[in-house]
C-alpha cells in the first residue's frame, strides 16, 4: 500500500520537497539520501541501463553467419515495421488488451469493493484465496492450465464426456487466445485486487459517515465515493496491465509445447523477439524488435494516462 501511494504521488508530481531548514543541513541530507539510493542505483545501472544501451547499440548493426558485422542504421527498424509476423503479434496483443484487461480489472474492482464493504465473513480467507493464484509462478500456472484444457485427459473434457458431449477444444486456433486470457486473468485478479483494496482502505472514514448521513447506500457509496477516490490506483493497475499484456511470454511459450502448430514463433511480440534471437540467431534484429515493442508500450501507456487525465479534468 505504501508503495502504491508513493508511486501515485510521484506520478502527480506532488512529492513534498524542500523540507530542509538550512543549506548545510540540506546538503548533508541530500548526501545521506544519495548514499542510501546508491546500492539501488548501482544495480539499476548495471542490470538495466547498461544492457538497455547495449541492445540499443546492437539494434543498429547486423551480424551475418557469412559476412560478419556491419552498421546498418535503421534498417532493422524498417524491416520490423514491415514484418507481418511482428505486426500480427502486436495486433493480437491489442485484441488481448481490449478484451482481457477490462474483465480482469472489473473483477478485481468488484472483489475489492466487496471485501471493503465489510459484509463478508471469513474476509481474510477470501482475500487470501483470491490472491493465491498470483503466488503461483506463471510457468506453473500455464502448465496446470495446459493440463486442465487437455482434450483427452483434462477434467473439462472428462466432465463433458460424462455428460455425453464434447468440451470445446480450448487449445485450438480459435480459442487459444481466450484460453490464455483466462490464465492471465486467473493469475492477476488477486494482485490487482490487493492494490485497489489497499487504496480503498486509505479513504478516511469520515467521508463514509458523511455519505451515510446524507442517506447513501452501500452501492451509492461505492459508485460515487470509493471508485472516484481510488482512481489513481485504477490508473496504475491499468498501466501495469497494458505493459504486462504486451510482454506476454510465459503462457504462450508453455502452451506451445502442447499446441505447437497453434502458437507459432510470432504469437506474441516478445515470443517473436526471443525466437528471432535464439532460433534465427539474429540478435540485432531481435534487439530492434524489443525496442520497437518498448515504444509501442510507451505510446499505449501514454494514451491511457492521457485519457484518464482528461476524464479527471472533465469531472
Amino acid at each position: 500500500m505504501a508503495s502504491t501511494t508513493t508511486t501515485t504521488e510521484v506520478q502527480r508530481g506532488e512529492t513534498p520537497t524542500g523540507r530542509a531548514h538550512g543549506a548545510g543541513l540540506q546538503y548533508r541530507e541530500a548526501r545521506a539520501g544519495y548514499l542510501f539510493v546508491l546500492p539501488f542505483l548501482v544495480v539499476f545501472v548495471a542490470m538495466l541501463v547498461v544492457p538497455l544501451v547495449y541492445s540499443g547499440y546492437l539494434s543498429f548493426f547486423r551480424v551475418q553467419l557469412i559476412g560478419g558485422n556491419a552498421f546498418v542504421g535503421f534498417d532493422n527498424y524498417v524491416r520490423a515495421v514491415q514484418d507481418n509476423t511482428f505486426i500480427a503479434g502486436v495486433l493480437r496483443m491489442v485484441q488481448f488488451l481490449v478484451i482481457q484487461v477490462p474483465i480482469m480489472l472489473g473483477f478485481a474492482l468488484l472483489f475489492a469493493l466487496v471485501l471493503d464493504s465489510g459484509r463478508l465473513r471469513l474476509k481474510r480467507f477470501v482475500r487470501l484465496s483470491i490472491f493465491v493464484p498470483y503466488a503461483v509462478p506463471g510457468v506453473i500456472a500455464a502448465l496446470m492450465w495446459g493440463y486442465l484444457y487437455g482434450r483427452n485427459f483434462g477434467p473439462f473434457a472428462q466432465f463433458a464426456r460424462d455428460l455425453g458431449t464434447t468440451a470445446p477444444n480450448f487449445l485450438s486456433r480459435d480459442l487459444m487466445l481466450y484460453s490464455i486470457m483466462n490464465i492471465v486473468t486467473w493469475s492477476f485478479v488477486g494482485y490487482n485486487m490487493i492494490i485497489m483494496f489497499a487504496a480503498l482502505r486509505a479513504i478516511p472514514s469520515e467521508v463514509y459517515e458523511a455519505a451515510r448521513v446524507d442517506g447513501a447506500g452501500e452501492i451509492r457509496v461505492a459508485w460515487s465515493i470509493k471508485i472516484p477516490a481510488i482512481r489513481p490506483a485504477l490508473l496504475l493497475t491499468t498501466i501495469f496491465s497494458v505493459i504486462g499484456t504486451f510482454q506476454l511470454f510465459n503462457e504462450p511459450s508453455i502452451l506451445a509445447t502442447i499446441a505447437p502448430n497453434v502458437i507459432g514463433i510470432g504469437y506474441t511480440p516478445n515470443l517473436y523477439a526471443y525466437n528471432i534471437a535464439f532460433i534465427g540467431r539474429e540478435v540485432n534484429y531481435a534487439a530492434a524488435l524489443a525496442f520497437l515493442l518498448g515504444f509501442v508500450i510507451m505510446i499505449v501507456s501514454y494514451v491511457v494516462q492521457l485519457g484518464a487525465l482528461r476524464k479527471e479534468r472533465a469531472s
Partner: peptide, 21 residues
C-alpha cells in the same frame, strides 16, 4: 544446413502448419 534450428522452426510455420490443419 548450417542453420537447422531455423529450418525446423520454419517447417512448423509452413509445411507443419499445413499438416496440422
Amino acid at each position: 544446413l548450417p542453420f537447422m534450428d531455423f529450418a525446423y522452426s520454419a517447417f512448423n510455420e509452413t509445411l507443419g502448419d499445413a499438416i496440422s490443419q
